[in-house]
Computed example of a mutant assay.
Amino acid sequence: MDPEQTAVTSNALFEALDEGTWHRVHEGGRRMQVSAGTPLFAAGDPCQGLPLVLSGEIRVQMIGASGNEIVLYRIKGGEMCPLSLGCLLTNNSHQSEAVVEQDSEVLVIPAGLTEKLMNDAVCFRRALLESYGQRLQSLMLVIEEVAFRRLDERLAQRLVERQSYGRLSATHQDLAVELGSAREVVSRLLKEFERRGMVELERGLITITDLPALNRIGQVNTDGKTD
């Protein structure tokens, strides 16, 4: 088995495929090297196939009519994009956009081949549906947070989750996209956190100065990584 085949068949979607099916994937799939910052697809684009991320990380997000963005989920090495699967199954265009966050290698399986594999390979179909179900659950949590939790609670939780040893490299716009809010609103909350002694703000950098206080606001657990 060559290195390319090993990289793909090590994924749960392909691990039980026979040699003939693997060759259909290898010959029919389109392998792409995509640099960080590159859009993989945009809202309104026709769905050309099912993207499987072999390495790297891709952010999937939506932009509302107001121009605000919200991150739906991220797909990493060994994962596929479930919303793309939904587009393929319903023959619709993309309703979201995907942006490469880390240099990535992506295998795009054409629509016809995806359908063939779902019909012929039980393990492939099961893995796709399991991934789709897991992402649906995570999207329900996103909806619950946006609809029912205060923004200051969600911001505090995100700061705790993303910090490493008390520091977080992120702009106010980055956090606004994560939370589905406006940059101005997030900036105002961050300045209030700073006024209360919980964070220190610099350009592109947030230093956590009172992790327990942020935890109380966000009501989350953390491993306590601080300076």
Score class of each variant (00 low, 15 high):
E19P: 00
V186K: 14
E161P: 00
G86W: 09
S66C: 00
P82W: 07
A156I: 08
S84P: 00
V71M: 04
S104P: 02
E202C: 03
E57G: 01
E192C: 06
V108A: 10
T226N: 14
D174Y: 11
V177T: 13
M32I: 04
S96E: 15
M198E: 02
A182M: 11
E115V: 01
L113A: 04
E15A: 03
L168K: 03
Y132I: 07
E27F: 10
K191R: 14
V122R: 03
L129T: 03
A127C: 08
G28M: 07
E202H: 06
S35V: 10
P46D: 01
W22M: 03
K76H: 12
D223H: 08
T226H: 14
G112Y: 00
E15L: 09
V100G: 15
T209E: 12
C47H: 11
V186E: 12
D223Q: 11
V100D: 14
E27L: 05
E178V: 06
D223C: 04
Q5A: 05
Q163Y: 05
L40V: 12
E144K: 05
E145K: 11
R135Y: 13
I75V: 08
D223G: 08
L189H: 07
Y165Q: 15
G44F: 04
D120N: 14
W22D: 03
G197P: 02
D2Y: 08
R167S: 06
S66N: 02
T38H: 09
I217L: 12
G28Q: 05
R150N: 13
T38S: 09
V142S: 04
E184R: 15
V142Q: 03
T38G: 05
P51E: 03
G78K: 09
S169W: 13
R74F: 13
L40F: 03
I58Y: 00
E97Y: 01
L89W: 08
M1I: 07
L189N: 01
M118S: 09
Q134D: 14
T209G: 07
G218N: 10
S10G: 11
V146T: 12
S169K: 15
E79M: 12
S96C: 04
A111T: 12
V122N: 01
M80G: 14
V8H: 01
V71D: 10
L214H: 04
C87V: 08
E145C: 02
L139A: 12
L85M: 13
V99N: 13
E194K: 13
L211Q: 08
D174C: 03
L83P: 00
R203V: 08
M80F: 09
L205W: 10
D103I: 08
